[in-house]
């Protein structure tokens, strides 16, 4: 208890402490200093950014993680400028235990994210390093078992849409089922079109828009349709204007109103479902 109160004083109070080397910091070699940051290859202003960002941590037990985090990043082969961007996107990384970092990175390698992809994933979605190995494993299992993706497909999903790791499983399952059953799209096409980058609302709204225009049909049991459906890829990948002119052949005015109508429709459906469960 005593320890607790003294650390909180050190972190919250007296900002002047943060600018001068804290007495405690001298005792540990793991504290960051401006010169040491410059030594690592950061420019002066980058070093200052990081120094400021970690100032609140200084003197706490978390402070030693900052240095190990930077080390891990450099070991991954990331440039100082990328490291800074990553840390700005996800400051939480400063406080992560080195062991955990190693475990998480090791796990991603095991999942098939080899050099190149690994760096890309960390750069685009640094939050992935804050996720416990157990959570990642659960999600991988879920993708394999509930959604029947192959190991390679799971690797591709993690590489292209790592944020999937943090998604709500129920929502994810719903999105998968929607695309699988309602749109009749197979796993390989889902991976190819980077489905998990898009929200359920986006996917559903574009699909329903096409469907109501008569440009998309749910395949029958034999997988057949009366019309040729657009590929999921071309439904998702274009910006709205291109989607409207090339795929849906509709106007922005129509789509804008349609989105609002759908939002209301779905909200009411949900409310009804909710109501009937409660009743």
């Amino acid at each position: 208890r005593l320890l607790c109160s003294s650390t909180s004083q050190g972190t919250v109070q007296s900002p002047q402490h943060t600018h001068e080397p804290h007495p405690l910091s001298k005792q540990t070699v793991t504290e960051l200093s401006l010169p040491s940051l410059v030594d690592m290859g950061f420019t002066d202003s980058q070093a200052e950014h990081i120094y400021d960002a970690t100032s609140k941590l200084r003197g706490t037990s978390a402070s030693k993680h900052s240095l190990s985090t930077l080390t891990v990043m450099f070991v991954l082969g990331l440039k100082p400028s990328s490291v800074l961007t990553i840390l700005e996107k996800c400051p939480e990384l400063y406080t992560i235990n080195e062991l955990h970092l190693h475990q998480r990175i090791g796990n991603m390698r095991k999942l098939g994210l080899v050099e190149g992809s690994l760096q890309r994933v960390v750069s685009h979605f640094p939050q992935i390093l804050t996720v416990p190995v157990k959570t990642v494993k659960h999600m991988v299992l879920f993708l394999k078992e509930k959604c029947q993706f192959t190991s390679q497909q799971v690797t591709d999903i993690l590489r292209d849409s790592p944020a999937v790791i943090l998604e709500d499983k129920e929502q994810l399952e719903y999105k998968f089922q929607y695309v699988y059953y309602r749109m009749g799209v197979k796993q390989a096409d889902m991976v190819k079109s980077r489905l998990f980058r898009y929200t359920l609302e986006e996917v559903r709204c574009r699909h329903c828009f096409l469907e109501r225009r008569g440009l998309y049909q749910t395949p029958d049991k034999k997988g057949q349709t009366m019309i040729i459906n657009s590929k999921l890829d071309s439904i998702l990948k274009f910006d709205l204007d291109t989607f409207l002119t090339d795929v849906a052949k509709g106007s922005a005015e129509e789509y804008e109103v349609f989105q609002r109508l759908m939002a209301r429709e779905w909200q009411e459906e949900e409310e009804q479902l909710h109501g009937s469960i409660e009743a």
């Binding site: 828009f209 440009l215 509709g250 109508l261």
Partner: peptide, 11 residues
């Protein structure tokens, strides 16, 4: 017809 169809099937 595309546009009319979508409208007919919506609120």
């Amino acid at each position: 017809w595309l546009s009319v169809r979508a409208a007919l099937l919506s609120e």
